[in-house]
Computed example of a mutant assay.
Amino acid sequence: MVLTSLREISRTGVPRGWAGADNFSALLDHPELVPVIGRTIVWVAGIVAVTVALSLGLAQLLHARFPGRRLVRWALIVPWAASLVMTAIVWRWMLSYFYGITNRVLTDLGVIDSPRDWLGDPTIALLWMMWVGVFVSLPFTTYVLLAGLQTVPDEVHEAARVDGASRWRTYWSVVFPLLKPALLVATVINVINVFNSFPIIWAMTRGGPGNATDTTTTFMYKLAFVDQSVGQSAAMAVVNFLMVVVMVLLYLRAVRWKEIG
């Protein structure tokens, strides 16, 4: 990848020699680069934050004892086990302007007056795709946090009750700090997966209209296979990799991961 980013590659994929930093210069001059990077940061931060928040609640729910708990745990696996491409296509059909069930239901309920082109508006389309990203990320994150909850000894809860702590206080002051290792793993893996997520965006909007819903991953694909600029695409791949590393390192520093253990 790095080697390709420093070479001049023909449209047919034949190396023509060294290009030095020309590919990176051309990439930095691209008018869509800054909006794409900004959109990618929103995409990653939004999906990961909402996923972790919802997963904390779901993990706590699935950790409690109730009739049918095993069935609910199995059901939660479905979005994770299903094909990501098929999940995105199903949501695209549901949001279709002409025959989507979303417009039908919302119209019948009186939420909207007439059908809307959900995927035709870049802002709304991005929000819907972020929801799909949350939907498919919940199972893994929930199970990681559930595994963390199951490692918390019962004696901890009993000691908190003896000290008169409420359930809410016990969770935030005792249980949540013990969840930090699981939370660290779930967040870092989610950042990497969401950052490099391609199927959801490509299956639902192909980054359109234009480049309005592109992230760095789909933008990189378009550079290679639409613009046929393999060198710039490789340069974008290097930038993408560095951005992932920086975001993960910033997160690890923020949570002081060396103190977790």
Rank of each mutant, 00 (worst) to 15 (best):
W80M: 05
W74D: 12
P79N: 11
V72H: 08
R70N: 08
G57Q: 13
R65W: 11
G57E: 10
R65K: 14
V52Y: 02
A49P: 10
A53K: 07
L76M: 14
L58I: 13
R70M: 02
W74G: 08
L54V: 13
A53P: 10
I77S: 01
A81R: 03
G68C: 07
F66V: 06
R70V: 01
V52I: 15
V50W: 05
V50L: 13
A49C: 14
V72M: 13
A53E: 08
G68W: 06
H63M: 10
A64W: 02
G46I: 01
A75W: 04
A64P: 03
G57S: 12
L76H: 00
Q60Y: 15
L58P: 02
H63L: 09
Q60M: 14
A59K: 01
P67W: 14
L76N: 00
P67R: 14
T51N: 10
A59I: 00
R73S: 05
W74S: 11
R65A: 08
V48K: 03
L62I: 02
A82N: 07
I77Q: 02
L54S: 09
S55G: 11
L56K: 02
R65L: 11
P79V: 06
G68V: 05
R69Q: 09
A81N: 11
Q60T: 14
W80A: 03
R73Q: 15
L56I: 15
L62Q: 05
A82E: 04
V78I: 15
G68N: 06
S55V: 02
A82T: 13
A49Q: 07
H63A: 09
L61G: 14
S55I: 00
G46Q: 06
A75D: 01
R70F: 05
V48L: 11
A75Y: 04
L58E: 01
L54F: 12
F66N: 10
R65D: 15
A64N: 09
R70G: 07
V72I: 10
A81M: 10
T51I: 07
A82D: 08
R69L: 09
A64E: 06
L76S: 05
L56M: 15
G57I: 10
V78E: 00
V48C: 09
A82S: 15
T51F: 07
H63G: 09
L62H: 03
A59C: 13
W80G: 00
A82K: 09
Q60R: 14
L54Y: 08
P79C: 09
L76P: 03
A81C: 09
L61N: 12
